[in-house]
Each structure stands twice: as structure tokens, then as C-alpha cells.
Amino acid sequence: MLDVEELKEKFLNLQFDTKEFSLDADKVATVAKMSGETLPEFTDPNHPDFQVPPAIIASLAAGRHLPIEFPKLGGIPMDGGKAVTCIHPVKVGEPLTGRTHLHDIYAKTGRSGRMVFLVSRMEIFDANGTHVATSDSRMVIREKPAQ
């Protein structure tokens, strides 16, 4: 069984990944349109305020899910959800940098056993180094009963 307090002490708030992203305008527009978006600032790459919708920000994946020294997860990992904070409009056509750390680790116990939640936070910066958005990914591990 994972020791949540020990993991928090050892791994929280330590950056473990940096990754560069370059977004394709047509793909960004496709994501917006398939989501039912109709505002041209999200669907029309020629719009002067064309920008990235939150779903694209949520899709940006770090080079690795967890710090390299993180212990093996004993259970079945699942995608528990995503959260996006938009600080400034994210423009297409300029490089973005995502810096990732573990933001939170917590456990919940129910009838089916214990589930451990790992919240990985990617802070996204534009080419000027301005923090433009934050994306949280919740990974849920349902621990095996024997653990």
C-alpha cells in the first residue's frame, strides 16, 4: 500500500518534466468545432483573436507521468479528470513550454477499497516566459485488495 504522507513529503512540488509544444492551428480549430464551439476566436484560425480552447490545454501531456524515482503503482491507473486554469489567452503559432510537478497526493477509501489520487500540474508558459495556463491531471489508482 502506498504511504501517501511519505510520498507527499518526498515528491510534491518538485518539477520533474519540461516539454515544448507547438500547436497546429487547424487541429486546434477541429477540436473546438468537434466540441460544439461556434465562437470564431476558437474555430477560425484567421480570426485576429484566435486562441486555444481549454480542452486543447488539457490534452497537453508531459514527457512522463510521474517523477522518475516514484515507486511503482500497485493498482490500476485511470484518468480521473482534468482541470484547466486560463490566465491569458493561449495563442497558436508560438512555442509553449510546459513544466510539470506533482501538486497533490491524497487517498479516499470506499466500500471497494482505497483509491489514491495523484494530481500532476503542468504550468504552461509562452515564448516570453509568461505563465498563460495551468493544467491539472488527476490519476486515480484503485489499489488491489491484497496490498
Binding site: M34, S35, G36, E37, L39, P54, A55
Partner: peptide, 18 residues
């Protein structure tokens, strides 16, 4: 995709208030 549901919800908000 889970994040497509996020996209649906964002679109709904923009339909309500552009």
C-alpha cells in the same frame, strides 16, 4: 475522450454567453 466532454461544457457556456 474525457477532454471532449470538457470541450462540450465550455461550448455550452459560450452558447449561453458568447
Amino acid at each position: 475522450p474525457g477532454i471532449m466532454a470538457m470541450g462540450f461544457l465550455t461550448s455550452m457556456i459560450h452558447h449561453w454567453s458568447p
